[in-house]
């Protein structure tokens, strides 16, 4: 198949990339653009570790054709914070020991960000509901929920 070029806004920067027509957004992010924070856990839409934001909505990037990202706004974990300037969610996950092996953390944080961008004051049940598509095998979720609640509290106080 002929390769095609897609252009999208990636973490605030206009990016053009040549892709195979049937490649997933995840493959393009990880293997063409070498943004490795977005993880590959199943490729079946079952684990949530590849979650990114497309126009602010959480999307499983393994199930989305990269071609459909043309003209859209994509945000990956790299786009929300760095080790020097962590996003409040990243800082809270770190403080609460919410990352153990760390493989689900990028997807978890992006799913949480999508929630908080829409609803800055969710209760614990609403947080759990928003994360229900993201699997974690290490933590038992409690520290993850605690971390997100911390951020909600910080935002209420701010």
């Amino acid at each position: 198949m002929e390769s095609i070029t897609v252009t999208f806004k990636l973490n605030g920067k206009t990016t053009a990339v040549a892709i195979e027509p049937l490649e997933s957004l995840r493959t393009v992010l990880r293997e063409h653009l070498h943004l490795h924070a977005t993880k590959a856990g199943c490729g079946q839409g079952g684990c949530g570790s590849c979650t990114v934001l497309v126009n602010g909505e959480p999307v499983l990037s393994c199930l989305m054709l990269a071609a459909l990202a043309d003209g859209q706004e994509i945000t990956t974990l790299e786009g929300i914070g760095t080790p020097q300037h962590m996003h409040p969610l990243q800082a809270a996950f770190f403080d609460r020991f919410a990352a153990q092996c760390g493989y689900c953390s990028p997807g978890m944080i992006m799913a949480a960000k999508a929630l908080l961008d829409k609803n800055p004051h969710p209760n614990r049940a609403e947080i759990a509901e928003a994360l229900a598509g993201n699997l974690c095998r290490c933590t038992g979720y409690v520290t993850i929920l605690d971390a997100i609640e911390d951020v909600v509290t910080q935002m209420q106080e701010a």
Binding site: Q44, L131, G133, N134
Partner: peptide
């Protein structure tokens, strides 16, 4: 074959 049939807990099941 997948997490569709192999059920493990989510944040809702804790």
């Amino acid at each position: 074959y997948s997490f569709g049939e192999y059920i493990i807990p989510t944040a809702l099941d804790i």
